[in-house]
Amino acid sequence: MKVSELAQAGGVTPETVRHYTREGLLHPQRDPQNGYQRYDNESLSRLCFIQCFRMLGFSLGEIKGLLGEAMQESVSCSKSQDILANQLPQVRLRIRELQALSARMDQAMQAWQASPGGVPTGHLVSHLLDDLSQPVIV
Rank of each mutant, 00 (worst) to 15 (best):
C52G: 13
T21L: 10
R54W: 03
S43R: 03
A108K: 04
C52N: 14
A70P: 02
Q99H: 09
G118D: 00
V3S: 14
L129F: 01
P120D: 05
R30Y: 01
F49I: 04
R104H: 06
C52M: 13
R92H: 09
A9D: 09
L60W: 02
N41K: 07
D40R: 06
K2M: 06
M71V: 10
E42D: 11
C48R: 14
V119N: 01
R104F: 00
E62Y: 02
C52W: 08
L44T: 08
N86Q: 11
L25G: 14
K79R: 13
G35P: 09
C48K: 14
A100D: 11
Q134A: 12
P28E: 12
L128Y: 01
V3L: 10
A85H: 06
T21R: 03
Q87A: 03
L56H: 05
R46D: 15
E97C: 14
K79C: 08
Q134N: 07
D82N: 10
C48W: 07
R96M: 08
P116N: 00
E42P: 00
P28Q: 12
H123T: 13
R94S: 14
T13M: 12
G11V: 11
E97G: 12
V125Y: 00
I83K: 07
S78N: 07
Q107H: 10
Q8R: 07
V138N: 13
P135L: 05
Y39S: 07
A114P: 02
T21F: 05
L67E: 07
E5I: 09
Q8F: 01
Q81S: 12
L93N: 11
N86F: 02
T21S: 11
Y36V: 13
M1D: 09
F58A: 04
S59Y: 01
E73A: 15
V75H: 08
G24C: 09
K64R: 15
G68S: 13
V12Y: 04
H19C: 05
P14Y: 02
P14L: 03
S45H: 12
Q51K: 15
A70M: 13
S126R: 00
P89E: 01
A7N: 03
P135R: 06
S80N: 02
F58I: 01
V119P: 00
V17D: 10
V75F: 05
L98S: 06
G122S: 14
I50A: 13
R54C: 10
S102E: 14
R30A: 11
A108S: 14
E42T: 11
G35T: 10
L93K: 12
V138A: 10
E23Q: 15
G65C: 04
G117H: 00
F53A: 15
L47Q: 07
I63Q: 05
F53N: 14
